[in-house]
Design a protein around this nucleic acid. Structure first.
Lengths: 232, 232
DNA sequence: ACTGATTTGTGCGTATGTATC
DNA sequence: TGATACATACGCACAAATCAG
């Protein structure tokens, strides 16, 4: 019962139903609306607080904590710029960096033969310290020998690419799908297993149009909104 | 147990792991891989067949049924063109058409005062007869008086807009999020309640940049892939 | 046209955990 | 606490369809 209510409220928060008021209706109101006892409703709200969706303050109410990150998918998609534009502090954690044979998909998008060596980098992207995405990137090993070393030292991606003679790069294409997270992924992204994630498959190319990076990024569905053509 | 296996296989199918071979590995192989009895695995596969993800044929195997629809989000986003380009037959069902006061969000995106009358049209979009999206569109009532009448007669959207002097229109912006479907929505889209949907909030403008349509579209997450910048 | 290997379909028996009364 | 019913998982065996040689 309370789980259903929590799910429904989570959906409404995600849909920004309470975005303008900034807080949930009172517990009594909500209890009446769902036709349950206030105790039952409190359990639902407690679950939301646990997930970090709301913060309850005694005598005041349950305040919406969700801060939707707008992630712009443009031809010049850059993680840090995207966040700074919204006044969010970007940070990254390098989870893995190693050389592996290319997966079928990575090879196809990088226009390599299957099994060619590629550099794999797995990063946890954060905004104000909260995880927002798990990004897996594949670079052709031949062209970017030594890239992993620089990554380990914490160098900025754009800087690293400049070091390899890539002055600028563009997003050639993005494919967007949705999935339920694996248990492990949900834990990593610090999100409930019952909420979906947004998956983006992307290909970045240099100014000559040669693919330099194939990426698979998984965004926290509840905190991220992908924006295309934000001229508005 | 078998539900977990079904979920995992569904995810893999969605991730196009078996897209090239077109069928699942044999029951014996999968049973070995998951460390379960073949009966248990068969139950998982039966669930997938129930959902329409695979079709099992005796003596042959379990064949992937998923036909991923690539839905291009470009500046000239058109439903029919999008499908025809992939050799799919587009069709639509008009579910609702009425005049209502604008919701807060519709008003904001159409640059109207809150509560202004707008025309609401709800369409079920299909590809080869299978539902792929539920599209809700809002048009300013003042500019498009009589639009609902034309919609009821089954006129093409582009044709209708031409009738109102809109020779061409462009997609100004799209915001992409993900959600779990409500029971009702899942039934309408003929998809399991356990699988997420892709939500797109869009604004179309005429050639002068004036908003003519605000749309909220919900895509079947398992059958649709949104593609941005498909130069590849 | 036949053979043997592979793959799905089916039946029966057994054991276990869970929900209900 | 025990009895009953139900769903689930395992093991084994065999039938039926398919395919390559």
């Amino acid at each position: 019962m309370w789980k259903q209510i929590a799910e429904e409220l989570a959906t409404e928060i995600h849909d920004r139903v309470y975005a303008d008021v900034g807080r949930l209706p009172s517990e009594n109101e909500l209890a009446r609306r769902f036709g349950v006892n206030r105790h039952t409703l409190r359990q639902a709200v407690a679950a939301l607080a646990q997930q970090g969706l709301v913060a309850v303050e005694q005598g005041k109410g349950a305040f919406i904590q969700q801060e939707m990150v707008d992630y712009a998918l443009s031809r010049r998609t850059r993680f840090s710029e995207n966040l700074l534009r919204q006044g969010l502090l970007p940070s990254k954690q390098l989870l893995a960096a190693r050389e592996v044979p290319a997966t079928e998909r990575a090879a196809r998008h990088l226009k390599l033969r299957r099994g060619t060596r590629v550099l794999l980098a797995e990063m946890l992207d954060e905004a104000n310290g909260d995880p927002i995405a798990l990004a897996t990137a594949y670079y052709p090993a031949a062209r970017f020998a030594g890239l992993l070393e620089l990554l380990n030292r914490g160098t900025e991606t754009t800087q690293i690419l400049k070091h390899f003679g890539v002055a600028d790069y563009l997003r050639a294409s993005s494919r967007i799908t949705t999935q339920m997270p694996t248990d492990q992924l949900a834990q990593l992204l610090r999100q409930p297993k019952t909420r979906p994630v947004l998956c983006v498959e992307s290909v970045d190319v240099d100014l000559e149009g040669v693919p330099i990076k194939y990426g698979e990024t998984v965004f926290v569905g509840d905190r991220v909104q992908l924006v295309v053509g934000s001229d508005a």
